[in-house]
Design a protein around this nucleic acid. Structure first.
Length: 294
DNA sequence: AATCGGCACAACCGCCTTTTT
DNA sequence: AAAAAAGGCGGTTGTGCCGAT
């Protein structure tokens, strides 16, 4: 027996939205918000629609600042490179594009970009990127056995559209490779801008997250350390959306404060005051510097 | 003018995850 | 801790438009 439907399909209207329905939904949400409950919203807004349908209509069409069509070359490149890296995680990809929805990106990919991607081939595609180093294969991905990882001896291979299932980690000989970028699967969170942070800390209140921060359990020394991506780095490691790396509290990183500081000077700290916090991308860090922390 | 096929995109479906009770 | 409810996501489908025949 399957899950019970969220609403009575026989009593709700389906199919294309009329201008009147759009207007009713838009004015209601703008006046009251979703109230954190889309299921009950249609009744309050006087709509004979399923709550999920309302949510989708708002998010994909009625929400302010949404762009439709007219994808730029730059957006094409971002989509292609992210697809290459993380596969069909449309919401993640869309979060990297201002004003784009996952549905839009998905449709655009399926109808246009896929062909372009297939025609161009991987070699051409990576050369399309304005920052081709960021799509280099030297990326680290999550792995069940990550807890005992020594960064200086690990490299990810097999990064493809199914990378989460197929990625492997191999041992490579010293000297450690220099990574241009270390990419973590911090894409689990909903991210709205390049300046957002994802933190693994166990409590958002305890580390003073602001509206640009998102909790990401299980990828750090915080919750569920057995599945931790960064176990051993203390309880407040955090990542930004582009995979660059920072820590929340430098004192928790390592007992060797001077070593930690030498590394952390190149990083962004979540507990920096907002007027000090760097904007945009943060400097690359090297594999060696990570391994030095152990 | 009518038909057909391809395309674009909105909307739905069902499953998984997260949150609430 | 468990169950239920709600949210979120990706795959798929339905429909209208448009150009070719």
């Amino acid at each position: 027996m399957g899950r019970a439907p969220c609403c009575d399909k026989t009593k709700v209207k389906r199919g294309p939205w009329s201008p009147e329905e759009d207007s009713a939904l838009k004015s209601y949400v703008q006046a009251h918000g979703s109230g954190g409950n889309w299921i009950s919203l249609p009744l309050k807004a006087g709509l004979k629609r399923c709550g999920k349908s309302c949510r989708l209509r708002w998010l994909n069409y009625l929400r302010p600042d949404i762009k439709h069509g007219g994808f730029t070359e730059e957006e094409d490149t971002i989509i292609c490179n992210l697809y290459k890296s993380i596969g069909s995680r449309w919401s993640v990809i869309a979060s990297q594009l201002q004003g784009r929805t996952d549905n839009d990106v998905k449709n655009y990919w399926n109808t246009k970009l896929k062909k372009k991607y297939l025609l161009a081939g991987e070699t051409t595609l990576s050369s399309l990127s304005s920052s081709s180093s960021s799509s280099s294969p030297n990326l680290l991905t999550q792995h069940d056995q990550f807890t005992n990882c020594n960064f200086s001896h690990s490299i990810n291979v097999g990064l493809d559209e199914h990378f989460e299932n197929h990625s492997q980690r191999l041992l490579v000989p010293d000297p450690p490779l220099q990574y241009h970028q270390i990419m973590f699967p911090s894409f689990e969170a909903t991210l709205n801008s390049p300046n957002n942070y994802v933190t693994s800390s166990s409590s958002s209140s305890s580390i003073g997250l602001d509206e640009n921060c998102f909790l990401l359990p299980g990828n750090g020394g915080g919750q569920d350390e057995s599945k931790s991506l960064m176990a051993g780095f203390g309880h407040s490691s955090c990542y930004d959306v582009n995979g660059f790396f920072g820590f929340h509290e430098r004192t928790s990183i390592d007992a060797n404060a001077s070593l930690a500081n030498s590394v952390c000077d190149n990083l962004c700290f979540d507990d920096y005051p907002s007027d000090v916090k760097p904007q945009g991308l943060y400097p690359s860090i090297t594999n060696y510097e990570f391994s030095s922390l152990y």
